[in-house]
């Protein structure tokens, strides 16, 4: 779920923009600048993936996949998400031009945390990677939902009810995302394990290297 224009207080909107820009710049800096065109192409795929709908009882939910994005792209994930959301508000009908910064933070921060967590704990066995994948899938969505609720709550206590409902609406999504992420990571671990290593990270700027 993305926040639309006009909901957030102006200070949060502007602050979101500033924070998101700073994080995007950091993310671009951590990526290999040579690989930025590649990252753009991959972003398109994540975008298409986020259009997948999963039936849930009588309704359906669409995927957010901050977990997988983080796991596959690492620090570059924030840039990728920002780009995806910009694309969405530019060319598709999901508006949110003024809320773009806040939306990017909402999806990007969980992705960064998930990426860090996944690469810290994924280990070598497929089983462990699958479980870590599931955890970041569920955790990423949960964090996104909490940030969404928190952002809505910045509007004052009048927004508490809406924030609670938005949070509650994400509960089934958390489970679905967790399972999907676990299965997807397992698929990748079997079929193309090199994708679980970070593809776009700039080795020169890697502090662990």
């Amino acid at each position: 779920m993305h926040i639309s224009d006009g909901v957030l207080p102006i200070s949060v909107t502007v602050g979101g923009y500033i924070a998101a820009t700073a994080l995007t710049a950091w993310s671009a800096h951590r990526s290999n600048s040579r690989d930025l065109p590649k990252l753009a192409v991959v972003t398109a795929a994540f975008f298409v993936a986020s259009l997948i709908h999963i039936p849930f009882g009588p309704t359906s939910v669409h995927l957010l996949i901050p977990g997988i994005t983080g796991a596959l792209l690492g620090p570059s994930a924030f840039l990728s998400i920002g780009l995806g959301l910009l694309l969405q508000s530019l060319l598709f009908q999901f508006g949110g031009l003024t809320a773009l910064g806040a939306n990017t933070l909402m999806m990007g921060i969980p992705a960064l945390i998930c990426g860090w967590f996944f690469h810290k704990f994924k280990g070598d066995s497929m089983m462990r990677q699958t479980i870590t994948g599931g955890l970041v899938g569920a955790g990423g969505t949960a964090m996104a939902a909490i940030i969404l609720a928190a952002l809505l709550f910045t509007g004052g206590e009048d927004f508490l009810g809406v924030a609670k409902i938005a949070l509650a609406a994400h509960v089934p999504v958390i489970f679905i995302e967790g399972l999907i992420s676990a299965f997807t990571i397992r698929f990748l671990a079997r079929v193309k394990p090199e994708l679980l290593e970070l593809s776009f990270k700039d080795p020169a700027k890697d502090t662990h290297a």
């Binding site: 398109a44 997948i52 999907i180 997807t184 698929f187 079929v191 593809s199």
Partner: peptide, 14 residues
Amino acid sequence: AVANFLGMLLVRSF
């Protein structure tokens, strides 16, 4: 099945 689909989509895109 959706996870496989998603995985395949990502593999092809990379």
